[in-house]
Simulated scan of single mutants.
Amino acid sequence: MAGTEAAGEETAQEVAAAREEAAGEDELFVLTAVLLTPAQFPAVLGDDFPEACGALGLVSDERGYGLVLGQDGTGARWTVVVDDVSLVAVAIASWDCGMEYDLSPPERSVVAALPGWPLALAVAAPGVPEPHDPELPDDSPDGLLLTPPDTEQWGPAQRRLGADEIARQWATWRDQLDEQSDSKTFEGSEGALHPQVRRVIDALHGYVANPPPVGRVRSAFASGEARTLRADGPGWSFVARTDDIAFLLLDDEPGEILPVGRGTELPGLLESLDKLAARPS
C-alpha cells in the first residue's frame, strides 16, 4: 500500500507539473497594445475601420477593440483581441507617460486569439525563447497567421504607414518644405494641379458629398485649435492640418511625398472633411 501511495503522490506531482507547464505556455507576456476603433486603428490593416476589422476576421463593431500583442511561454507571437477598449486605452496612455501598467485583460473580454503580430516589434519578453511564429495545424486556412508588411516593398500598407508618420512628425516634415512649395503644387485652379493631386482632391470632395465607410477620414488633436486629418482611398493617402497644407502619398509614386498648398480650395475642403471625420472619444 505504501508503494501504491508513493506512486500516487508521484503521479499527482507529475500531473501538477504538466498543468503548470501548460499554463506557462498559455500565459501571454504582454509587449504592447494598440486600439482598433473607427478613429484609431493600425494603418497596415486597411483604408478604413471595416476593412481593418475584416483583415483580422472581426465583425465591424464601432465600439471597437483593443489589440494586445505578446508572446506565450514558448516565445510564440500572439495577438489577443479584447472588447474592453477603455482598459487598453488606459494602458497605452500610462505607457506613453512612462508609467508602468500591468495590462491583464480578463478572459471574459477576450474576443479572439490570433497567431502572429500585424505590426513589427523590436522588443521581446524576457525569460522566454525569441519571438517566433506559432506552429499551426496543417489544415489551417491561408492568411490565418498575422505578419507585418514587408518594409522593403512599396505598397498600400507602406503608403498608409508613411502618412501616419507624417501626421506624427508634422513639424519636421513641414520644415523640410521650401517656402514656395505651397504655391507650386496647389494653386486652387485645375490647370495648376498635378493630375494625381486633382484626382485625390476630387475623391475627397466625393467623400464630403457621400460619406465613405467609417474611419476612412479621421481627425486628431493638433496644436492650438487645429486638427490633424488623415484620409485614405484606392491608391492614395492624405494627411493635412486644418490650419496648414496637406501631403499626399500614392501607390503609383513609390516613396514620393506630394505637398498640397492651401490655395483657395483646400481650406474649405479640410473644414468639411473635419466635420465628417471619426474622432477619438
Results as ranks from 00 to 15, higher is better:
G73I: 09
E271N: 13
T151L: 13
P259N: 07
P106L: 11
G261C: 07
D47L: 06
E165T: 15
T79A: 02
T242F: 09
A39V: 06
G263W: 00
R218V: 10
R230T: 15
E165M: 14
Q13L: 12
R227T: 05
L35W: 08
A12G: 06
D84L: 05
T37V: 13
A278E: 12
L177F: 11
P280V: 12
Q180L: 14
V128D: 05
L103P: 05
E51W: 10
A122P: 01
A39G: 01
S219E: 11
C53Y: 02
D244H: 09
E14A: 15
I92Q: 09
D61K: 02
R174Q: 13
A171S: 15
M99H: 15
L114G: 11
D72E: 07
V260T: 04
L250F: 13
W173P: 00
V88M: 04
K184N: 14
F41V: 05
A277P: 06
A43T: 04
P212N: 09
G191I: 03
A16R: 07
R218P: 10
T228P: 02
R262F: 01
L28H: 02
W154N: 00
L193S: 07
W78E: 06
D83V: 02
R108F: 00
A226F: 04
G215M: 10
W170H: 10
G64R: 08
R198N: 10
G64D: 02
V68Y: 05
S281F: 11
P149K: 04
T147S: 15
D102H: 13
D252R: 03
E152D: 15
A157W: 03
S140M: 11
D84C: 10
D232V: 04
E256I: 09
V128E: 06
I245H: 13
L270G: 07
A2N: 12
P213Y: 11
G268S: 12
A209C: 08
V85G: 06
D175E: 12
W236Q: 00
P148I: 02
T151N: 09
R174K: 14
L87D: 02
Q180C: 14
R241Y: 01
A246N: 08
L114S: 07
Q169W: 08
Q153I: 15
L103E: 07
R63H: 14
E256C: 09
W236Y: 08
L56V: 01
T79G: 01
H194F: 12
D26G: 03
V30A: 03
E190P: 03
A209R: 14
G155E: 05
L269I: 11
E265V: 12
F49T: 00
P118W: 03
V34E: 13
A226I: 05
A125G: 09
A122G: 11
P126G: 11
P131M: 03
A157D: 09
V111R: 13
S60N: 04
K184A: 15
Q196S: 14
A222C: 08
A171N: 11
L177E: 11
A226H: 05
F41Q: 00
